[in-house]
C-alpha cells in the first residue's frame, strides 16, 4: 500500500480508537456511580424507609417526612411553574412571530436554564425567607419552580412551534378566536411534547439540593405545613452524608438510591415513550 495512504489510515485508526475509548471512559463512570448507589442503597434499604421519620443519630428511622416534603414541594413547583412556563412558551411560539423581543426572551430563558441553582436559592432567600423571617416549604417550592420554569418555557415553545400552521389555519377558518384555537386545538396537538417537557423538568428538580438549602431548609419532624421549614430528600441526604454517623450514612444512601431510581426512570421512560431530547 502507498505509504501516505497507510499513514493516513493509521492516524485515522488511532483517532477512532481514542474516540471509542473516550466513550467507554464516560460509560465507566456512569456504571461506577450507579453501581455504588445501587449497592450501598440496597444494603441500607428497608421498608421502614417509607414508614418512619428521620431519626436522631444512632436510632433507626426512615425518610417518610423527607419524601413527603419533597413530593409536596415538587408539586408546588409544578403548580406554580407549569402555567407560567406554558404561557410564556405560548407567547414565544404563537404570538411573537419574527419579533426581536422573542429572540431576547429565548436567549435569557436559555441562560436561566443553565444558571447556577444555588444562586436561585439565594434569590428566593432574599425574596421570601428574609422578608418573612423564616425558612419555609413555600420558599422551597418557589425555588424549585424557578428552576422548572425555563425548562417548561423551552419545551413548550418548541412543542408548539412543531405544530403545523395548517392546524391553526383550519381552526381559525372556523371563526374561532385565537385563544380558543390555541388552548383547545394547538395545545392538544402539542400536548405530548409539552407533557414530556414537564416530566423532564420534574426529573430535573427532584434531585436539586442547592436551592433548597436555605429556602426549605430541613425539618426532623413530619410537617404538612408549608409555612414552616420542611424536610426534603436532597437536603437530608446532604446533611446525613456529611455527618459522622454510620446510621445516617446508610439512610443517605438509601435516599440517594430512591432519588436516583426515580429520576433515571423518569428520564428513560420519557425518552423512550416520547422520543424527545432533554433541554438543559
Amino acid at each position: 500500500m502507498n505509504p501516505i495512504v497507510r499513514n493516513r489510515q493509521i492516524v485515522n485508526g488511532i483517532v477512532l480508537v481514542t474516540a471509542t475509548a473516550a466513550t467507554l471512559f464516560s460509560l465507566f463512570w456512569l456504571v461506577w456511580i450507579l453501581w455504588t448507589t445501587v449497592s450501598q442503597g440496597a444494603a441500607a434499604f428497608a421498608p421502614s424507609l417509607f414508614t418512619k421519620m428521620t431519626p436522631p443519630p444512632g436510632e433507626t428511622g426512615g425518610l417518610l417526612n423527607a419524601f413527603f416534603g419533597s413530593a409536596v414541594m415538587i408539586l408546588l413547583a409544578v403548580v406554580i411553574g407549569t402555567p407560567i412556563g406554558v404561557m410564556a412558551g405560548t407567547y414565544l411560539a404563537e404570538f411573537s412571530r419574527g419579533s426581536r423581543v422573542a429572540g431576547v426572551i429565548r436567549f435569557i430563558n436559555d441562560i436561566l436554564l443553565s444558571a447556577p441553582s444555588i444562586v436561585i436559592g439565594l434569590f428566593v432567600y432574599e425574596l421570601v425567607v428574609r422578608q418573612v423571617g423564616h425558612f419555609s416549604g413555600y420558599a422551597g417550592g418557589l425555588a424549585l419552580a424557578i428552576i422548572l420554569l425555563p425548562v417548561v418555557v423551552r419545551t413548550s415553545d418548541e412543542a408548539l412551534r412543531l405544530v403545523p400552521n395548517q392546524v391553526r389555519e383550519a381552526a381559525l377558518a372556523l371563526g374561532l378566536p385565537r385563544w380558543k384555537v390555541t388552548t383547545k386545538v394547538v395545545y392538544r396537538a402539542g400536548s405530548t411534547a409539552i407533557i414530556t417537557g414537564i416530566l423532564l423538568a420534574v426529573a430535573r428538580i427532584s434531585g436539586e439540593t442547592a436551592p433548597l438549602l436555605f429556602t426549605a431548609l430541613n425539618n426532623q419532624y413530619w410537617t404538612a405545613n408549608l409555612a414552616t421549614p420542611m424536610a426534603n430528600v436532597p437536603v437530608v441526604i446532604f446533611q446525613y452524608a456529611m455527618s459522622p454517623y454510620d446510621s445516617w450514612h446508610a439512610l443517605a444512601w438509601a435516599g440517594a438510591l430512591v432519588v436516583t431510581a426515580f429520576v433515571l426512570t423518569l428520564s428513560i421512560v420519557v425518552r423512550l415513550f416520547f422520543r424527545q431530547r432533554t433541554p438543559r
Binding site: S26, L30, T37, E208, A210, V263, L264, S267, T278, R280
Partner: peptide, 9 residues
C-alpha cells in the same frame, strides 16, 4: 443519563 444523575449523588 450521566447528566440526569442528581449532582448530590
Amino acid at each position: 443519563l450521566l447528566a440526569a444523575i442528581p449532582s448530590i449523588i
